[in-house]
Structures are given as structure tokens and as C-alpha cells.
């Protein structure tokens, strides 16, 4: 997989899905909106816009 272009100009948060916040103590929350399957990520940390800021992703630390 080729390296994504990197830059020191700006850093954005990764656009990958965050694990859902689990609160199972009271059972499933029917009002929480749609559910979705957990995705298997085939490629992560590509350049993306997060919260209106379109910077480059953080470099991967070896």
C-alpha cells in the first residue's frame, strides 16, 4: 500500500470509525437512532476533512 502524502502543515483527526460508546447496563437504547455493523477497515487514515478542517492525516509512527 503506498504511503499517503504527509505534511507538517496541519494535522487532522483520523476519519476512521470510532468504536461505539457501549452502555449496556440498561439494555439497548431504542431511541438512539440507526445501528450499523462494525466495518472491517481495508484502508485507514487517508486524507479527510474532519469538523470542517481539511488537513493531511497524522504520519504513522513506526
Amino acid at each position: 500500500m503506498p504511503d499517503a502524502p504527509r505534511s507538517a502543515v496541519g494535522r487532522s483527526a483520523p476519519a476512521r470509525p470510532a468504536p461505539p460508546e457501549a452502555d449496556t447496563a440498561n439494555g439497548p437504547d431504542e431511541s438512539a437512532g440507526p445501528t450499523a455493523p462494525v466495518l472491517s477497515m481495508l484502508a485507514d487514515d487517508g486524507a479527510a476533512c474532519v469538523d470542517g478542517v481539511c488537513a493531511l492525516p497524522d504520519p504513522v509512527t513506526p
Binding site: A18, L39, A43, A48, C49, D51
Partner: peptide
């Protein structure tokens, strides 16, 4: 629901994710 917080975000076959 998917946990997507940035775009573009690609979902293939409803099961696989590619971010950015």
C-alpha cells in the same frame, strides 16, 4: 452509527470501510 467523523468515507458492500 458507523462512527464516521470525517469525509470522504467509503463503505464497500456494506461491510468494508475505506477512510479518506
Amino acid at each position: 452509527a458507523y462512527g464516521i467523523n470525517g469525509v470522504p468515507f467509503f463503505v464497500l458492500d456494506g461491510r468494508y470501510g475505506v477512510s479518506g
